[in-house]
Design a protein around this nucleic acid. Sequence first.
DNA 1: GAAATAGTGTCTTTCAGACAATATCCC
DNA 2: GGGATATTGTCTGAAAGACACTATTTC
Lengths: 253, 253
Amino acid sequence: MDGEREHLAGYDPRAYDPVAVTVDVVALTIRDGALHVLLVRRGAPPYAGRWALPGGFVHAVRDAEDLPAAAVRELAEETGLSARDGMLGRVHLEQLGTYGAPGRDPRMRVISVAYLAFAPALPDPEAGGDAADAAWTPVTAARDLAFDHARILGDGLERARGKLEYTPLATAFCAPEFTIPELRAVYETVWGEELHAGNFHRKVLSVPGFVEPTGTTADRGGRKGGPRPRLYRAGDARLLHPALLRPGREQYR
Amino acid sequence: MDGEREHLAGYDPRAYDPVAVTVDVVALTIRDGALHVLLVRRGAPPYAGRWALPGGFVHAVRDAEDLPAAAVRELAEETGLSARDGMLGRVHLEQLGTYGAPGRDPRMRVISVAYLAFAPALPDPEAGGDAADAAWTPVTAARDLAFDHARILGDGLERARGKLEYTPLATAFCAPEFTIPELRAVYETVWGEELHAGNFHRKVLSVPGFVEPTGTTADRGGRKGGPRPRLYRAGDARLLHPALLRPGREQYR
DNA sequence: GAAATAGTGTCTTTCAGACAATATCCC
DNA sequence: GGGATATTGTCTGAAAGACACTATTTC
C-alpha cells in the first residue's frame, strides 16, 4: 500500500496522481456600511455564469511563485489594481486554509489554498483574466457560489470576526487616517452588532499601540450633527492587549 | 500573461506545471513532563538520515482521500497505531497551514499541507512506511530538521500555545480522566511557565463546560504528599469563556 | 432651535492575581 | 512527624459594561 510512496527521490509527478493547485482569495472590504466580498463571474464551465471567489492556478515551475505572491497576483488581476500603485500595498493578506476534498472540482483533483484579505474602500474592479465579470458584492447577497466557495467564504467571515477581537486589523478596512467612530463602524459591520460608542472609544484608546493621534480633526461632524471627531493612524501593535471581546458570547458551550 | 490560465475546462495537469501535494503532521504529546513531537528519520535523499515530520503524498486520484484523512493515515502509519484501536480516536487534529515556497523541496515543486495533532501519552512509535526510524522527541531537541520542517514545527508550537488559551484542548493531552493538577502541568509544559496552583484550580472550575467532575478521586496524592485530587472528564465546551490568558504578555507591541 | 454625535466621568460587576489558611497525604 | 500538595477563602487592582453628562456640530 505504501510502496509507491517510498521512492520520493526518483518521483515524477507526471507519472503519479495528477493534482492541480490553485489559490482563491476571500477579499473583504466595507462599502456603504456593509461588508462586501470580491466575486468574479465564471466564463467557462463548470459553473459557467456562476459567481466565485477570484483565484487561479499557482505558477508552479515556470516563473515559480510563492503562495502569497500568487494570491496577490490573482487579486491584482481581478481588481485591475497593481501592487505598485499603493492601493494593494495597504491590503492585509493572510492564509485562511486549504481545501482539497475529492470531488470539490468535478473535473479533477484540485487543492485550493485560500487566502483572506482585508482591504480599504477600493474602486470597482475591472473584469480581467478569466473572469466574465467582477464586482464587490454584499456578503449577504453572495449566494450560489461555485465549487465549495460558500464554505470558504463562511470560514473567512468567521476568521475575520475573530481577528478583530485580538488584532488591530480593523484599521486595514480604513483609510490611512480615520476616526474612532469610523473604526467602530468597522467593528459593528463585521460583527453585525451595535457597540456602545462611549465604552468603545475609551477602550480603543486604552489599548497600547492600537491607534495614535494625528493631532488633527475631521472636516465635519457626524451625518446628523455632533462635534468633529479627532483623526488617528494605525499604531504599531500587532496584537491587542487586552483584547476587544465580542459581546454576547457568554453562552458558548 | 494569463492566456494559459483561461482554459480551465480543458485543463490537463499532466501537461501543465507538475506539482506534488503532501501532508505533514506536527504531532505533539507530553512525556515525562516535557513537550514531545513525533519525528521520523528519513531513509532516502534528500536529507537522508535527517529527522523530519511524518508525512507523505496525498492519495489524489486512486483511492482519493480527503486531506484530514491523509493526515490520520500518515500518523497511523508512522506510529504503528490504528484509528480503530481507540488510541488515535482521542487525538485532536486540525489544519495548521500550507507551505509551498519554491525550492523548499530541492527536487520539484511540493505543496505541503501541515496538520497539528494533540495526543495523550502514546506508546513508542514503530518505524513504518518510508521511515528508517521514528521517535517521540523533546521539542527542545528537535534540531536540524529536513526541508522547512523547523519552521512548520515552530508555527505548530505557537499555535498550540495559543489554542490552550481559548479552547479546552489541553484535555486532549490527558487521559480520559484527569486531575486539575495534571491539567495544570499540561499548561505549564506547553507554555513553559509556572502557574499559581490555587488560582488555576478556581479558574478552571469557573469556566462552564471546561471540565466535569467524575465524583471520584485519584489513587494517590502528589509525588511528595498532599491529599488525593479529584478526577474530572473533559466537558462539552468548544471555547473557553472567559479565556485562560497566558501570563506576562502585557508588553506586546 | 432641535436633534444627533464626540468624548469624558462614574459606578457596578466580573475577573485575574497575590496571598493566606486548612486539611490531607507521601515518605 | 515533617514537608509537600489540594482546595478554599480573602483581598486588591484591572477591566468591561451600563448609564449619565457636557460640548459641539448639522440641518
